[in-house]
């Protein structure tokens, strides 16, 4: 038989038609076309014969393998049991690890709550002195007002000192202040420095304890002042 002329539907569409994989409108139009078009009907019949044949072949019973079946089912059951056992162990392990982490976190939080940073002891550095000269509020024209800590650091040691972290603690709360990368006090040097924290427009200097902690390359330095 011959291939249909181009005005007919593309044979590939008949293949998809047979599989019911076309939009409804297209399928309906093609079904109508079939009535008056023997060549297209022949294409569809051929595809259909091949498809029905393949479906019939697929129905042929597989050879029975009772021993293989028994063995496979046993293997499957063992595999799943093993998998479940592993999963159970993994779940236990995950639970234990989680519990340890949570306990650690809880302990750290509890320590944090019961041991405030104000209690952080200064490391004994007899040759290094930190003095909190004054605490004041400074108002500039452009920038918001700030609470300033004027400090003096004296390094009487024979080696330079690096300031890594600065934490101020006052009636407004505790706050870490940024430190310039080059905050270094050379051996024998005395350095005056201002650390500030921004405050609200209407803030006033409140009475209470004002404390500054410097974490240095050699240890911590603490200085404080009480404002009556």
């Amino acid at each position: 038989m011959s291939t249909p002329s181009p005005q007919h539907y593309d044979p590939q569409e008949w293949s998809a038609y047979l599989d019911g994989e076309l939009p409804a409108a297209r399928r309906d139009a093609m079904r109508d076309h079939l009535r008056d078009c023997p060549p297209c009907a022949a294409i569809l019949r051929s595809f259909e014969a091949v498809q029905r044949g393949a479906e019939s072949l697929a129905q042929q019973p597989a050879p029975a393998q009772p021993q293989r079946r028994t063995r496979l089912v046993a293997i499957g059951a063992a595999m799943i049991a093993q998998g479940r056992s592993w999963r159970r162990w993994l779940l236990w392990l995950a639970a234990i690890v989680s519990a340890v982490i949570l306990a650690g976190l809880a302990a750290a939080l509890w320590r944090g709550a019961t041991q405030p940073r104000q209690a952080t002891p200064a490391v004994a550095m007899p040759k290094v002195q930190l003095t909190l000269d004054r605490v004041l509020i400074t108002r500039y024209f452009v920038e918001p007002p700030s609470l300033e800590y004027d400090v003096t650091i004296h390094n009487g040691d024979a080696r330079p000192l690096e300031v890594i972290r600065v934490i101020v603690s006052d009636p407004l709360g505790e706050k870490e202040r940024p430190v310039a990368a080059a905050l270094r006090v050379e051996a024998g040097q005395t350095l005056q420095r201002v650390f500030s924290r921004p405050i609200g427009e209407d803030a006033r200097l409140q009475s209470g304890r004002y404390r500054i902690l410097l974490e240095t390359s050699d240890g911590r330095l603490v200085a404080e002042k009480v404002v009556p």
């Binding site: 038989m1 291939t3 019949r45 051929s46 014969a49 091949v50 044949g53 393949a54 019939s56 072949l57």
Partner: peptide, 25 residues
Amino acid sequence: EPLTLLSPSDALLNKEFFQRLADAM
């Protein structure tokens, strides 16, 4: 592929057709 069509007798789903189809597959 060039499209070849089955003759009506070929399209009968008989034992011989299944065997030929299985070989073709």
